[in-house]
Design a protein around this nucleic acid. Structure first.
Length: 551
DNA sequence: GCCGTTTTCGGCCCGACTGTTTTCAGTCG
C-alpha cells in the first residue's frame, strides 16, 4: 500500500504505511495473538482496522482497489535500479507498461526516451538494470564474498597511504546476504589509493574512478565501492554508511530531539560540529553508547546494549563431518585443526543411515567409530593434552517424528544432533509435531538447522516456531545456529525469540572438511544479530559444563 | 496516517546524484 500511495503523492500517508510494514517484519510477537494492534508503533486506528480486515478475510479492500486502479507488477518494476514508483506510474499511464517484460520491450523499441521527463540515458539504464537482475538475484551470500573482500581489505590496508580503513553497509552488519560492499578509508593521497584499487587483480569492471569514490565489480560478481572520507568525519561517515537505513532514521531522530543534526559529516549543533572523528564519539554526542553493527538493523528496543557473544568465546564445534560419512578428513586431522584453533573439544557428528546420499552410518559403523574416537582420546591423555573428541551424530528425524538410530545406540553417545532432512513439504501441524516428538526423545540433545531454509534456494519449511520453543524449554533441548553461509539457521529473529524464551543454543559449522571449521565466525555473527550473549550459547562453556547441558 | 516530558495541529531523516531540466523531481543509500 505504501508503494501505491507514494504513486499518488500521498507522501506522508505512504511513509506511515511503510513504517508499519517495516515494524511488522521485525515484530517479535505474531500479529494474530495481539489484543491491541494500536500498541504496535506506527499503527493507529486506520491501519489497525486494515490489519484486522486482512487477518479476518485475507484481503484489504483498499489495497485491492489501489491495485485495480494501477494493475501492474510494481515490485518487479521497481526492482530495476533507477526505477521507482513515480516512474512506474508514468510508464503505465503513457505506455501501459505492466511488468518487467513490457518494460524491457518498450526500452528496446526506444519508446521510453521519447517521454517527457525521461531520456536516452534513462532508457539505457533501464536495460542495464534489467540485465543485472537477470544475471544475479542482486544479492550475494556473505560467506561467499567474504574471502575476496578480506583479501582486498588486506591489500588496501597494507598501503602506507591508507590511514584508516573499514567496511560499511550490510557487509559490516554481517547480514546473511549483501547487495554490494562499501569500504571507507582515510587517506592523504586518495588518487594513488584509487588507482591501486581499480587495478586490483580481482577487478573485472570499473564503473567509476574518482578521488572520493570509485566503484568496481569483482570476479564474484559483486560491486565494491571505495570512498575516501575526511579524517574528522570518519566516524560519522562510517556510522552513516553502515546503516541500516532504519537505524540511521532512528539515530537522526534522536539527534533532532536533542536539537542536533546528524549526517555523514558529523554531529552539529547549529553550524558547530561537535563530533565526527570516531563512531563512539558520534553515538556519545547523541546520548548513546556505541552500538555493534550487528545490532543496527532496526528498532533500539534494548534498555542496555546487550553484551553479545564474540568469536573468542567459542570453545569447540559440535557439528562436523568426518571421512566416515564421506567428508574430507579423518577424525584425527579434524581434532588437530580444532586444537590449533584453540578449542577444548570437537564433536564428530556424522550423518546416520537414513541419509543415503551423505553415506550415513549404520549402527554398527557408529559403534566402530566410537572405538576410533576412544583411541584418539586415550592418545591425548597420554600426551597430557587437555582436549577431547566427543562422539555424536547427526541423526534424521523421520516423517513420523522417530529417529533413524535406535535408542540403544543413541544413549551411549556423548550427544545427539537430530535434523529434518526429508519430507520437507509436509503441512505445518505435522512438521511441528514431528520436531516436537524428536525433542521429546530423551537422547536427542540438539536440533540441527531448525527451520530448514537454504538461502536463495528454498524457504524454511512450515512449522510453528513458538511451539518448538515451548517444547525445547520443557525438554531442555538445544537449538542449533548452523554457520553454513547458505543456512544461517536459526535466523536472527528466531535467535532473539529463543533467547527470550530461555532456550539454549549451540553454534555449529556443519563442516565437511577442516577448512570449513573456520565458518564459525558466520554463525557467531548470526548469533550476535540475534542479540545472543555468551551464556545463551552452550559451546562457549568448558567441557565439564557442556557435558552437563546434554540430556 | 501517526504522533506528542514544549504540541490534538503541524510536523514527519538527510544529502548526493542523475537526468532531465533552466530550478527540479525522482531515486538511492
Amino acid at each position: 500500500m505504501a508503494n501505491y500511495l507514494e504513486m499518488e503523492d500521498s507522501s506522508f500517508r505512504s511513509k506511515a504505511y511503510r513504517k508499519v510494514a517495516e515494524v511488522l517484519e521485525t515484530l517479535q510477537e505474531s500479529v494474530e495473538d495481539m489484543k491491541d494492534l494500536e500498541k504496535i508503533p506506527g499503527v493507529g486506528k486506520h491501519i489497525a482496522s486494515k490489519i484486522e480486515e486482512y487477518l479476518k478475510t485475507g484481503f484489504i479492500r483498499d489495497y485491492e482497489k489501489l491495485k485495480k486502479e494501477t494493475p501492474i507488477k510494481l515490485e518487479e518494476i521497481i526492482a530495476v535500479e533507477g526505477m521507482g514508483v513515480k516512474k512506474a506510474k508514468v510508464l503505465y499511464d503513457k505506455l501501459k507498461i505492466k511488468n518487467l517484460k513490457d518494460l524491457e520491450k518498450a526500452a528496446k523499441k526506444n519508446k521510453i526516451a521519447k517521454l517527457e521527463g525521461f531520456g536516452e540515458k534513462t532508457e539505457k539504464n533501464i536495460l542495464e538494470g534489467i540485465a543485472f537482475l537477470e544475471r544475479s538475484s542482486g544479492r550475494f551470500l556473505l560467506g561467499k564474498i567474504t574471502p575476496v573482500v578480506e583479501d582486498i581489505l588486506d591489500k588496501l590496508s597494507n598501503l602506507k597511504e591508507v590511514e584508516k580503513i573499514s567496511t560499511a553497509g550490510s557487509f559490516r552488519r554481517r547480514k546473511e546476504t549483501v547487495g554490494d560492499v562499501d569500504i571507507l578509508i582515510v587517506s592523504k593521497k586518495p588518487e594513488e589509493v584509487m588507482t591501486f584499487f581499480v587495478s586490483l587483480p580481482d577487478v573485472v569492471k570499473v564503473w567509476g574512478h574518482g578521488t572520493t569514490k570509485s566503484s568496481v565489480r569483482i570476479k564474484e560478481g559483486v560491486d565494491v565501492d571505495l570512498r575516501v572520507v575526511p579524517a574528522k568525519s570518519y566516524g560519522s561517515a562510517l556510522q552513516y554508511f553502515t546503516g541500516s537505513k532504519e537505524h540511521n532514521i532512528i539515530t537522526r531522530r534522536i539527534a533532532i530531539g536533542k536539537e542536533l543534526k546528524l549526517n555523514e559529516y558529523g554531529v552539529f549543533r547549529g553550524a558547530k560540529m561537535i563530533a565526527g572523528k570516531t563512531e563512539k564519539e558520534v553515538y556519545r554526542a547523541i546520548g548513546l553508547d556505541w552500538i555493534p553493527p550487528e545490532l543496527r538493523e532496526s528498532e533500539l528496543d534494548f534498555k542496555k546494549i546487550p553484551k553479545i557473544i564474540e568469536l573468542k568465546d567459542i570453545k569447540g564445534d559440535l557439528h562436523c563431518h568426518s571421512k566416515w560419512n564421506g567428508g574430507n578428513d579423518s577424525i584425527a586431522v579434524i581434532a588437530k585443526k580444532a586444537m590449533k584453533m584453540g578449542y577444548e573439544y570437537i564433536g564428530i557428528s556424522d550423518h546416520t543411515q537414513f541419509l543415503k546420499i551423505e553415506h550415513g552410518l549404520n549402527e554398527k559403523q557408529l559403534l566402530k567409530q566410537k572405538k576410533e574416537i576412544d583411541k584418539i582420546n586415550l592418545k591425548f591423555k597420554i600426551e597430557n593434552l587437555k582436549f577431547r573428541v566427543l562422539w555424536g551424530c547427526e541423526a534424521n528425524i523421520l516423517t513420523d517424528g522417530s529417529i533413524d538410530v535406535s535408542d540403544k545406540v543413541l544413549e551411549q553417545m556423548d550427544y545427539v544432533i537430530a535434523g529434518v532432512h526429508s519430507a520437507l513439504k509436509i503441512d505445518k501441524e505435522k512438521m511441528t509435531q514431528r520436531i516436537i516428538m524428536a525433542m521429546e526423545n530423551p537422547n536427542v540433545d540438539i536440533i540441527a538447522h531448525p527451520s530448514g531454509r537454504i538461502l536463495q534456494q528454498r524457504d524454511e519449511y512450515q512449522f510453528d516456531f513458538d511451539k518448538i520453543l515451548e517444547t525445547a524449554k520443557k525438554t531442555e533441548t538445544i537449538l542449533e545456529i548452523n554457520s553454513s553461509p547458505a543456512r544461517l539457521d536459526l535466523k536472527d529473529s528466531n535467535i532473539r525469540k529463543a533467547k527470550k524464551a530461555g532456550v539454549k543454543m549451540v553454534i555449529g559449522t556443519d563442516a565437511h572438511q577442516i577448512s570449513q571449521l573456520d565458518l564459525m565466525n558466520f554463525g557467531v555473527s548470526q548469533a550476535r544479530r540475534g542479540w545472543a550473549e555468551k551464556e545463551d550459547i552452550i559451546n562457549t562453556q568448558p567441557l565439564s559444563i557442556l557435558l552437563q547441558s546434554f540430556k
